[in-house]
Design a protein around this nucleic acid. Structure first.
Lengths: 233, 233
DNA sequence: GTACGTTTAAAACAGACGTTTGAGACGCGG
DNA sequence: CCGCGTCTCAAACGTCTGTTTTAAACGTAC
């Protein structure tokens, strides 16, 4: 994933894609989500995009590079939005116009995730599902670049939650962040374990409903009092 | 996934595998977890198992059938253990020797998951990761059989949690179960979003540590007071 | 010892895969 | 008119896939 270059005023310059390249990107995004990287063939992508097979290797260099392009197009604006949310919260807390608590930190993730889920023009919930696949499948393609280019994002969230929950050890904070993000992330991705068993009464695809139920759940979890050690010193 | 037949006393009769078949099962399990179903070739499996390529199609019918066998061998004993835990809780609650609360219901899932994670001879954490991949990749192979053969398990958990949280609507109970299972499941599977960014301070692979942190988190979330509707009638 | 079902072995099958090639179509400034 | 990038197209490349075939080795019962 190459980071997009920045123009003079700092706003990202999206690489211009020809119409053919765009059709490939969109078909690929949908198919990668539904079938996964390995199971999606270039022939299927080009067929659904209505373009020639060789166009993929012309516009993108390879199948792997196409996957990176599909991912970066959606991920980078989203990650930048998360960063902006954190910075805005810090500014408002410094100005005394906002409380710096766990809910405020959490909303710095929920708001961008909600906005993304509701905006099909940016990939919508489809991209969150793609991200989820990438995570569980642990793709070699993205491991390196994600930690190099966006590792600081996680560091920022960790620091923020630590500041919002001052009584906790660093280890405890890391766990709450881990568990909180886990449930929020998989909820937005629509990963419903129970649905696999055909018995989920939850319509886990409506973003507003997700927020309504997931926010109190995670907030309660993050604020939970740690269990007293039963026999440790 | 064919269910194993039962002997007279109700204990499952595990199909006898020849040594060759067993070596295939074990190599396949490891590779399916690491690489996924599509990316794992039969040649790689047989090479690592030290057996001939054709042995797969002889002992198992096809690659898909091998995958089902790998999955069923681990899943069915686990699911039966979950069922037993629920039945034991109901019996003890009826006898007045246990409280039927959210924690008790939750532990009916945590105990089997913990036992499985710590027992390499039953697949250990490896199988939970395989299960997680199956879930996110939404495999055609397992969708039908899981809901047909094990859907009632989810129904049982839903009823149990509803009984443990009597003040809540059915929808609310379904959401708490969904979110609670989601975080527990992905925690046991070691799905660490933050690790993908190279910044997780959490050593999410120690089952005892997982339980220590995930139980208070989920308990707090499940017991959370629902948010008051802000403007609804 | 010979016949039998079971298991292994090596080789070959047809098809799908990602990628490359080389020729031709298009728009555009000269 | 030409010349030159940009882009599309059909065809072919070599490799890998799941599966099948053929033959040989094995243990066991008669």
């Amino acid at each position: 994933m190459k980071s997009s270059s920045l123009s003079d005023d700092g706003t990202p310059v999206e690489p211009k894609y020809s119409e053919t390249a765009l059709r490939i990107l969109e078909a690929a995004e949908r198919l990668f989500v539904e079938l996964g990287l390995e199971a999606t063939s270039l022939r299927l992508i080009t067929q659904q995009a209505g373009v020639n097979l060789a166009a993929v290797n012309y516009h993108f260099r390879s199948k792997d590079a196409l996957f990176e392009a599909v991912f970066a197009r959606r991920f980078e604006p989203w990650a930048r939005e998360c960063l902006r949310e954190l910075e805005r919260l810090e500014a408002r807390a410094a100005a005394g116009t906002a409380r710096f608590d766990a809910e405020a930190v959490m909303m710095c993730y929920v708001r961008p995730a909600l906005a993304l889920s509701k905006d099909p023009s940016r990939g919508g919930a489809l991209f969150v599902r793609l991200f989820s696949r990438v995570l569980v499948e642990n793709h070699r393609v993205l491991r390196e670049t994600l930690s190099r280019d966006w590792g600081h994002l996680v560091t920022r969230y960790t620091e923020a939650l630590g500041r919002a929950l001052p009584g906790l050890s660093a280890e405890e904070v890391a766990w709450r962040l881990h568990l909180g993000f886990s449930v929020m992330f998989h909820a937005f991705a629509g990963n419903d374990i129970l649905k696999l068993f055909g018995r989920s009464a939850v319509s886990a695809r409506d973003p507003d409903l997700i927020v309504k139920h997931v926010v109190p759940f995670v907030l309660a979890g993050m604020g939970a009092v740690p269990r007293a050690e039963s026999s440790a010193p």
